[in-house]
Design a protein around this nucleic acid. Structure first.
Length: 594
RNA sequence: GCGCCCGUAGCUCAGUUGGAUAGAGCGUUGGCCUCCGGAGCCAAAGGUCGUGAGUUCGAGUCUCGCCGGGCGCGCCA
């Protein structure tokens, strides 16, 4: 509908250009938007206001000229000039009646479009280190990223959802050492747990499994393990530091000791056990949350292919790498970053940043035209250096969009929920899902703009009342289903063709409002997708549900007159379809009864 | 200190990329079921859009300066 009007205005402007009133309009962006106020019609354009100066003409006069030049259209009832020079378009009722037919005919496909034109887009999201279960912060990234991906797919993009698995690097070694130490404890060895180790209960679970499957085959004496290690940092229960050791040096030495005492094959086994156990858990967690990936991309694979070293060499060959203090630095400051960054440490190990450069370069080499990264907002300082590296390597950094997601703060009984139970761990995503359900979690996570802090009200998410927007929307869907059941019980048959033929009987203001709401769906999906703003869809669905509930409360659907009844049923069914489609994009179910 | 994000109704937030009289939900107050699901609907009250300037036909939206809040500034990931 909007594109149709857009074409009409374009044609009118072209004609005025030929008449010499206006300059060329090829590069012109024609503003055309839904009106806030129904008295201003369906769509309004401020084009005359912005062109008045170059046309050397009063805005209202120019608007009048444009109106006169508009081609005739059966979709338009009338066009008015209002205010300082707005052109207001009033759609013909037939345009809305056609919409109802389209919704019912297209079904689940309604609202999809082709403006993405098959563009290959990758959305990488969550990508949490496999060193522990996902927490509620990751949950927001998961819901947000999955919805952005769904939206892009809905506008015709070819979307690949990817999880980058950080299965290489120091953190994974710390996990392996942590598992082993817990295993030794389980076997009766007494030794202090390192300050920088992973303390979660899940580490003990993995250790127990190791013992259950292999008994004492991995045991070493505590004295051997601890011999001559640099001191750890130790704090007492109140957090007061009692030994000022170097916790980093301690854990690194502990990792080396672990490898030495176990030997590489046995070390590798524990490493893999920890990684696979946790990664499986993350996969299950996300799958249960309705989040699926086409690709789980391994950082280790990248390193094993030599991609990381290759990219460092490429940067060096291009003259953007220099050596200082024994390390290799990438001159990212030459590309807008605040300072230069280390890509290879003094000890010869490449940094996480080096892996990330290789990874992002490889994304482009895989042929994606657009690459979207969803990151926690605390990583925002990282954006310039990644873009700098891409630019240095001759890739176009504007093809990479980094979407930053702020933290979610849980509230219970109006108070900030405790983030930590015993070990400083965040509440897990799984715990949240079990408490409020997947539907509420998916919906609440995308209710706010991603760069906005999210106050997640656990009580509201659980409540089954109109206060809870998820239930409110789902209830509208269930209500239509209920009406259909009523039809069945009363022996009423619904005739879609008869309904379509009599949509002209829908003359109530509430029906008009509902039709307008339905018409906004495709526009909302498009805007939400292009701007990566799922919250627009969430808010839209609430508005749509409200328009339906209002209508339903005021007027009976199952009236005696078959023509009016079928027209109203068609409207109701179209509403149900749009709600179902919209909730589907959000990953929320549309129940038939509640 | 420097960089990024955020300040809109008592609370939580929208605001169609610069448009017409700034909107929802919650909360408060008052109404609506002989009727398809009251898990719903309607109405009232509530605002110097943090603040001061600037840009122009027009600013909650863009620019700059302040004030207040969050995050980031490792040879960590």
């Amino acid at each position: 509908m909007k594109t149709h009007l857009h074409a009409l205005v374009t044609q009118a402007l072209r004609q005025l250009h030929q008449e010499g009133l206006l300059p060329a309009i090829d590069t012109l962006v024609i503003p055309l938007e839904r009106t806030r106020d129904r008295a201003h019609g369906d769509f309004a354009s401020s084009i005359a206001l912005s062109l008045a100066r170059t046309a050397r003409c009063k805005p209202r006069d120019l608007a009048e000229r444009i109106r006169a030049a508009l081609p005739a259209s059966t979709h338009l009832a009338r066009v008015e000039i209002a205010g300082p020079g707005f052109i207001n378009f009033f759609l013909a009722p037939a345009a809305y009646h056609a919409l109802v037919g389209e919704i019912l005919a297209q079904g689940d496909a309604f609202g999809r479009s082709t403006i993405g034109a098959g563009q290959r887009v990758q959305v990488e999201f969550v990508s949490a280190n496999p060193t522990g279960p996902l927490h509620v912060g990751h949950g927001r990234g998961a819901a947000f990223g999955a919805t952005v991906a769904n939206l892009l797919e809905a506008i015709g993009c070819q979307v690949q959802r990817e999880y980058y698995v950080n299965d290489a690097g120091r953190q994974m070694n710390i996990l392996a050492a942590s598992v082993w130490l817990r295993y030794l404890e389980h076997c009766g060895e007494r030794l202090p747990f390192p300050r920088n180790g992973y303390r979660g209960d899940y580490v003990r679970d993995i250790a127990k499994r190791l013992y259950a499957e292999h008994g004492g085959a991995y045991v070493a004496a505590a004295a051997e393990v601890m011999r001559n290690l640099p001191a750890d940092e130790v704090r007492d229960a109140s957090g007061e530091r009692v030994i000022a050791g170097d916790k980093e040096a301690h854990i690194d030495a502990l990792i080396e000791r672990t490898r030495a005492l176990l030997g590489e094959p046995r070390y590798r086994y524990i490493f893999e056990l920890g990684l696979n156990t946790i990664l499986d858990d993350i996969r299950d967690d996300l799958a249960e949350f309705g989040v699926r990936y086409q690709e789980w991309y391994s950082e280790r694979g990248l390193a094993e292919q030599g991609a990381v070293n290759r990219v460092v060499n490429r940067l060096r060959d291009a003259g953007y790498v220099y050596e200082q203090d024994g390390a290799l630095w990438f001159r990212s400051s030459a590309f807008g970053d605040e300072k230069d960054r280390v890509v290879q440490r003094e000890n010869g190990q490449t940094t996480y940043f080096a892996s990330d450069i290789a990874y992002h370069l490889e994304k482009f080499e895989r042929g994606f035209e657009r690459v979207i990264d969803v990151w926690g907002a605390d990583h925002h300082g990282y954006v310039p250096r990644v873009k700098a590296a891409l630019q240095a390597l001759g890739a176009d950094p504007t093809r990479l969009d980094v979407l930053l997601v702020q933290f979610a703060i849980l509230y219970r009984n109006g108070e900030r929920a405790q983030m930590s139970t015993r070990s400083g761990e965040f509440v897990t995503l799984r715990e949240l899902r079990q408490e409020v359900g997947n539907d509420a979690a998916r919906f609440f996570y995308v209710l706010r703009k991603s760069e906005q802090h999210l106050d997640f009200d656990l009580d509201l998410a659980k409540s089954q009342s109109k206060d809870n927007p998820v239930y409110y929307i789902q209830y509208a869907h269930a209500r239509v289903c209920s009406v259909l059941r009523q039809c069945h019980d009363k022996g009423i048959t619904y005739d879609r063709a008869r309904g379509q033929a009599h949509l002209g009987l829908l003359v109530e203001p509430h029906e008009d409002a509902l039709l307008v709401a339905l018409a906004r769906y495709a526009e909302t999906v498009e805007t939400a997708a292009l701007n990566h703003e799922p919250h627009l869809l969430a808010h839209y669905l609430r508005d749509l549900a409200n328009a339906f509930h209002t209508y339903y409360n005021e007027h009976r659907v199952l009236v005696d007159d078959p023509a009016l009844r079928d027209a109203r049923l068609s409207l109701s069914l179209a509403t149900r379809q749009v709600i179902r489609n919209g909730l589907g994009l959000l990953g929320v179910s549309a129940p038939e009864s509640m």
